[in-house]
Each structure stands twice: as C-alpha cells, then as structure tokens.
Design a protein around this nucleic acid. Sequence first.
RNA 1: GCGCCCGUAGCUCAGCUGGAUAGAGCACCUGACUUCUAAUCAGGUGGUCGCAGGUUCGAACCCUGCCGGGCGUGCCA
Length: 588
Amino acid sequence: MLIASIKTEILTAVKAACQSQFGQQPEALKLGYPPEVELGDFTVECFPLAKQFRQNPAQIAQAIASEIEPSGSIQSVRAVGPYLNVKIHNHVLFGDVCNEIVGQGECLGSTDIGQGQRVMVEYLSPNTNKPLHLGHIRNGVLGMGVSKLLEATGHTVVKANLVNDRGVHICKSMLAWLKWGDGGTPETTGTKGDHFVGDWYVRYAQEEERQPDLEQETQAMLRKWESDDPETLELWKMMNEWVYGGFAETYQKLGLEFDAFYYESQTYNLGKDLIQTGLDKGAFIVAEDGAVIAKLPIDEFGTQRDGSQKVETLLRGDGTSVYVTQDLGTAKMKFDEHQLDRSIYVVGSEQNYHFQCLFKLLDMLGFEWAPECYHLSYGMVNLPEGRMKSREGTVIDADDLIEEMFQLAADEIRERDSESELSDEEIQKRAFAIGMAAIKFYLLRVRPELTINFDPKESISFDGFTGPYCQYAYARCASILRRAETEDLASVEPDFSLLGNEEELQLIRALIQFPEVVEEAARDLSPARICNHLFTVAQTVNQFYHKHPVLAAESPSLVKARLALINASAAVIKKSLSLLGIETLEEM
RNA sequence: GCGCCCGUAGCUCAGCUGGAUAGAGCACCUGACUUCUAAUCAGGUGGUCGCAGGUUCGAACCCUGCCGGGCGUGCCA
C-alpha cells in the first residue's frame, strides 16, 4: 500500500460514510495530521461539512466515525470534537511506507505534476569584471535548488546563465590592464582568473580618483569595442576567458550547473525589432527627444512624484538600446529556442521594478506567454555593519568564504579525530562537504524574499538548524545500518506491530509527509521548505535512536522493524540534502 | 509622493495558504559519554503574533486604515 493510496482509502471511506449518513457526497475534504501523534495518523476536519450538511461539526464527525468500519489499512476512526482521527494498521503505516520509501531510490519524493512542462531557470548572471561574492552564492544555491525541485516534480528544466560580458565596467578592467598590466596573466601571476581581472578593475577605480579623464579613455574604448575594433575585441575575449576560467572553478565547488550560457554581447541588440512591433501596434510611443517610451498603467505601477503616469524608456533617442530592450529580446529568444512553458528569473529584489516593467511590456506586446514569466526575487545579504559595499571593501568574496568554511570544518574534524585515524585526504573530503553544507543550508533555510543578515558566527555554526546537523543525523543512521550488516539478521522478518512509541510515530509521520513537502516546495519555488522538513526529520531521528536502541532492541524482529525505519529516514534525509545541493557523508 | 517586500520569544526564523493548547534554532541556566559517533539527547527560562478596526462558528494567516524597516521609482545593469 502506497502513501498516496492510504490517503485515497481514507477519503473514499469518509465519502462513502457521508453518502449513507447524509445522502450526499462532501464538496470538499481536507486530509491533515493531528497535532499529537497519539491522536492518530491522519485527520479529516469536519468544519467544511458543517455548512453543507447543516449540522454542527462534532455531530458530523460522530456520525461519520460510527459509519466507518475498520477495513483495509484503516485500523480505527475516532471522532474527537470536530475531527475525525484515523489510525492506520502498523504493518501499513510502518511496513509499507518504509518499503515504498526505500524502494524508490533516486525517485524518492518525485512526482509527475510537471510532466511535459519545459521551464527555464535563469540564475547567477554575473558581470565579468569582478569575482563572485556572497550575494552570488545565495543566488546560485537558490537557482540550483529550485531547478532540482522542478526536476523532482517532473519538469524539464533548462538552467541558464546570462553573462554580462560587455559595457563600460568591462572596459575599465581592460583599460587598466593595458596601461599597467605589463603583460601579466593569471598564469604568470598565479592568480585565479576572475580575481586577476577584478584586481585590474579595482586598480582602475583607484587611478580614476587621481585622473578623472580616464573616464574618457574608457568611453573611447567602449566605442572601439562597439565598432568591432579587432585589437579591442581580442583583448576583451582574452580577459573574459580568464574570468570564465575562474568562474568555472567556483561553480564547480558550489555544485552549480548550467545547460545554456547567454552572453549580453550577443543579446544586447536583440529587442529592437520588438520595439518596432510595439510602435506599430500603438503600444509604445515616440517621445519628443526621439526616445521610444511606454506608459505604465497607474493601477499597477502607481504614479511619479508629481502624480503623473509613469513612463519607461525602451530605446534611447539615438536608437541605442537600454537594459529592457535587451531583456525583451532575450525573453522572446528563450521561449523560441527552448519551447518554454515557463521562464523563471532568479534575480535580487533590487530589480523587482525592472521585472515588473519587463513582464508588463511583454504583455503589451501581446505575447501569450508573458504571464508565464516569473521573477524569483530574493532579498539581499547584509553584513552586521550593513550593506556590502565594494567601495568600502566590505564585500565578502565567494572563494574566500568557501575556503574559510572548508578550514573551519577541517579544524572541527581534526579536533574530533583525537586518535588521528583519518587520512589527510579523508579530512579534506569531509571538510569540504561539511563546510559547503553549512553555508548552503544557512542561505537556503529562510524564505527567498527575506533579507539575510549575514551573521558570521551563525553561518559557520555546525549545531542546531544547520546543514552539518542534518548530515550528522544521516551519518548516524548509516553507521547503524553498517553495523546491522555484520549481524545475522538475514532470515529475520521485521514485526512492525511492535512499533508505535511516540518517537517512532513522529518519525514515520515526518517521512510520510516528505512527498507533499517536495510538491509544496516546488510550487512555492522555496528550498526553505525542504530545509525545515529535513531538519524535523533529522531532529526526530536523533531523538528516536537516543531513546530507543535499534540493534539492541528486545527481539530480532523488532530490530528489523526499527532498521527499516532508520533505513527510510536515511533515504529521506539523503534525498532532501541532495535537493538542496548538499552532499551526504557516510561517516562524520 | 507612489509601487513592491518585510514586521511572530533577547537574536535568527517556522507556522502545512482559515482550524485542536502559537513551534524550532541560537543565547542563558541544569543534567546525560563503560551502552548503535556527545557535530547528539533530556529538562528549564522566555510571546499583548507591529497597532486599530472588519469578515468568520474560528484569524499569526483574509480585507481596510495606520506605525516601523528595506528595496526601488523613464534614457545604469
């Protein structure tokens, strides 16, 4: 009996009882869980029925409960006030459920609700003049997380990275390198490529303070770039390659994957023809200075300071494109190239307004897929002293942070390895997995829209509501399962009727809820939901094995039953971690 | 001014989209390693769910209005 079938069985029984007691089918039934596990394994609320059957909910519950005879999976149905609490037979509740969970393997928690849906998740989208920072890590793990959630629910996901590889800021590092770089390269200086280029960007900023006319040289270089000057293009390509090399390393460490790369140098001219279409349709208008603009509806965008209608510029007076121009074109290209059903943009909340405009403009252009574009907005990552500011050097560099987490984890491991039994290689492997788990979980555990106040102490913590805590719970399960293999239990059949204490009930309940949690997380594009549920499972399994011996249980058939529970718990923890992009360790 | 987001324990957050007595973690006390790894577990302290109305049998959750904070607000990305 599958989890889904148990639910259906309960609902079917309730419906049949309503039919015979009240002569009609219930309009709406909601299956939930009682607040205390002792009350039952599932519950059906009778409030909605009260309206339909014109009786008080407690009486309805009574009537239905008396109508349902235990059968199949259902052991008992009891009315408690307005609730119908259902108990499921142990061999189904524990036996069948654990079997199902363990048997599903990689597919655990997967559904097909998104079958046939193609969705693009664009995330990270860095500039090529600076290395990645903490904000990019939040973006990256979030983008990767929602991609995995969508995949788990049957969607076909195209993970895209729109690289901002052109513009003044890129020219600045190019110019600085040309002037003062002395032919150095990442290789000759032993510097990671993105940092190498970023250093020249910083150097530019310093020099510019002393000689403000550098700005003109930058503009001249940008013009050369735009007119396809071969030397400038060559320099540009070379420096961008250095950056990509550096980025690739960081992506790899963070486990970020992409199926498609878009480059703004190739997309920045897209969209101009769409502007013409908009003009032809009368959706856009030409302003006095020749710029193409769109008027934004007041009910959605509010007004300007003076109370007049808001306006968005789509094309400058000189015919050059702006940010939205490019994005309009790219949006269309994405749908055309990949036959998308949905297009998700993982971009920080400071761009909320931009995407509100972009989507409205797509709608004004008449694209039927415009409503399928979605800005997955996430809050900023602030430091204890406020916003990260590159000018003040308070930006937390991604590679530095990764290295720091790795070192901290390694220290912890060595401290616990008092006998020095672990090889250096093993320590490194574990330290990396644990360090990454800490930072990823820390950034994913709150809802995307919330601003994170980056607390260095808390972010490196390995206790409590953290990634390492969850990894540890898994490692403990794995340890018990390993030991079980050395015992002679092969011929013993588990007796699930022996289970049923509070910790066991709480654990199985959490496991049963896993598929719904995945579905909700995917629906809300919120890996935080996975974090919360995962932590509950980890906490519950910790409580369980602390209080109840598994291998030393009273009888072999109880040992087998508890092992099944541990096995299923480990599977759920592993899958949850994997949905968050976090590795599991068999030993910690 | 206008738009969007946020406001729940000292701090950081959950709260299954309206249901059973508001839950965790951190911090602070007190206990538990001869027993499947103490990155663990048990117990304690701690809340007018920003404020005021409204809808409902029932509101932290929905509506309205305030207050406080954040991000934005036509030719940057």
